[in-house]
Design a protein around this nucleic acid. Sequence first.
DNA 1: GTGGTCTAGACCACG
DNA 2: GTGGTCTAGACCACA
Lengths: 129, 129, 129, 129
Amino acid sequence: MDASLLTVQPASPEPIYRQIVEQLRRLIAGGQLGAGDALPSVREVAGFHAINPMTVSRAYSLAETEGLLERLRGKGMVVANTSRSSQTEARRLALLEPSLQALVRQTRELELPAGLVLRRLTTLLGEDQ
Amino acid sequence: MDASLLTVQPASPEPIYRQIVEQLRRLIAGGQLGAGDALPSVREVAGFHAINPMTVSRAYSLAETEGLLERLRGKGMVVANTSRSSQTEARRLALLEPSLQALVRQTRELELPAGLVLRRLTTLLGEDQ
Amino acid sequence: MDASLLTVQPASPEPIYRQIVEQLRRLIAGGQLGAGDALPSVREVAGFHAINPMTVSRAYSLAETEGLLERLRGKGMVVANTSRSSQTEARRLALLEPSLQALVRQTRELELPAGLVLRRLTTLLGEDQ
Amino acid sequence: MDASLLTVQPASPEPIYRQIVEQLRRLIAGGQLGAGDALPSVREVAGFHAINPMTVSRAYSLAETEGLLERLRGKGMVVANTSRSSQTEARRLALLEPSLQALVRQTRELELPAGLVLRRLTTLLGEDQ
DNA sequence: GTGGTCTAGACCACG
DNA sequence: GTGGTCTAGACCACA
């Protein structure tokens, strides 16, 4: 994998380091990056996208904390082979709870019928999956 | 209208002043706040939620800039009559779209089945309504 | 003169008390109000325009300070007969200096040619005089 | 661009943060600040004029809301490229209109002859240009 | 009573 | 280094 696989939008309101982490997550989940694959070096990515090396480093560190990447001494970062979705569904659903609560509150503030919101969400969840 | 209509989560990463502005937008779009309705005073809201008056003031000022509120000097803020309240369901649903998109993204990142999330949301939306 | 001679726009950014003072100034300068003419009482004006009596009172007091009105005990306010423009032209021009300075600064910030600004001002000063 | 390009009058009735926003508007319209130009940092401006950083920050935020400035995270504020700078003379003159109107109003209130005011302004506009 | 402005100073997010 | 948010508290303008 070379630096061009990642895309970065410095003008976006989303922090650059988070853009990178989320792309890594998707690339790994989608199989474009497999366990053991080497990642481009921090300075490679930083140079290619003209961003601060510290920003890339921070993204890699977060991804490592999250279990997505592993740091191989002398070889750089590689995709971790630890199995994902190790937690039970119930635990993962619990992580979604705050967002669900917020959605419910907003739905009520907008006085929208529950069915309408559920239908829209069903549509969104069904797309390209 | 009293200060309890607004809810504030100081622990949220979203700035308090923006939480308030967005709630106002939804409450007005949903018709719970109609043109001419008086808002609770800055001091009232600040006291009720134990936050700084300036934070509330900032929210009100932004809402005024946005055309949501009007300032009646010496009397306080009221819902602007230019901000046509009680919008169509389609428009109100559009205001929910960002939250829905975020929920979909998180659902995929957590690799949760759509049905599970939809069932949980159905439960939450059905409560005390 | 009755209360209807004054008009008030509570929605204007200009303070109400100042709206009143400036109208009085114009009405007197234009001869619609002559020396000795009685003004409507504070409560009359306040009731007619549904504004706070204190606001009207404040406007009358300022006009009195300015020499426009006189307070006749037991009879209310009347238009003063003190001659206006008692100061020399040079002194009055000096009062305009801050505004002139600001205009010059703004002209330079906008990089506008002096001639253009002077022509526009000439036009404005020539209208309905 | 250094902090000295902005001038601030703490004694003016106009709020400092608004003085700054309006100066930015004019400097950009006049072409003295072009798209992409970096602005002095909040702390720099605050230190130079001995005002509170938050006051400057407020001005910058408003200018950003207005589309005049853009925030480059970690780098500071720059003139937005959406705010097409160097506008036509007619547009720039339009920005001067409120000040001109105010000057005309004051001239009439002071009962000054137009020629006198125009001559004084001509002198002021001619100086060190 | 209302909101607006400013200050001094702390802490955070981002690069 | 950058700007953003929040606080506590003062003072002002307006009605």
